[in-house]
Design a protein around this nucleic acid. Sequence first.
DNA 1: ACTGGCTCCTGAGGGC
DNA 2: TGCCCTCAGGAGCCAG
Length: 271
Amino acid sequence: MPELPEVETTLRGISAHLINSEVSHVEIRTEKLRWPFQEDMNFVLRGQVIRDITRRGKYLLVRCAGGTLIMHLGMSGSLRLVPPGVEPGPHDHFDLATNTGPVLRLTDPRKFGSLVWTEKAPEEHTLLKDLGPEPLEERFSADYLHQAIQRRKRAIKLVIMDSRVVPGVGNIYANESLFEAGIRPETKACDLTLEQCTQLVDAIKAVLARAIEAGGTTLKDFVGAGGRPGYFQQELKVYGRGGEPCVTCNTVLEETRLDNRTTVFCPTCQS
DNA sequence: ACTGGCTCCTGAGGGC
DNA sequence: TGCCCTCAGGAGCCAG
């Protein structure tokens, strides 16, 4: 479900309510999400003071005094703050209760999300150590991208969805960014010029920033931690619009599949 | 070093 | 109404 903007929206919604809280207990209501829960999850988390919550790509990092809870929302996950005592629904798999009141509740129908506790520096964890530079930071530049993709023969769309190259960009924002950059999704990555890399990097940064500003994209039922939906779906120019006219030139948008993911582009604006 | 295919899981929506 | 199919915001893992 969530790509970088939805995870960032979630982070902004929850962090102020949880920082400096102490974890009173956790409740696990399913055997496993992506992986089985580690058995001592309650033991290791109970009593931890939440120092900070940050984001790396699509991962949320709940940084505590004695370690870090690494969370990923998969395709269908979302996090909300609920008052203690609210009855869990069928897909509410995990609660983290705090001594200050709010309960952080993970809902995830498809169970592709993950929750991993680590006591070492999280950036060195297997899940995070190979991630590329944060797309909204300066290190993610045209020079970086041009260098990173020079030996990659796959379609540029697949390469920008590779978290080792750009973490945080999923199917929606890959489609949107390529439209904004005027580049066909199936173009071989190694064929991109430095000029095109500049346009693509600028487009990725701009699209992600606008989406964050709008509170993310709500397709089915994504809601931020405060229960508000995102509004970026109203600004989508190609994703979900195959067969409809291009917002720029009125050409009918083409829909194809790349690596089994729906891909939409304008055959006139993108070359 | 890179690629393609498979996998996990549930729900919604379309066709018959 | 029910059944069966395809598709959905992800990414780790493995063989080649």
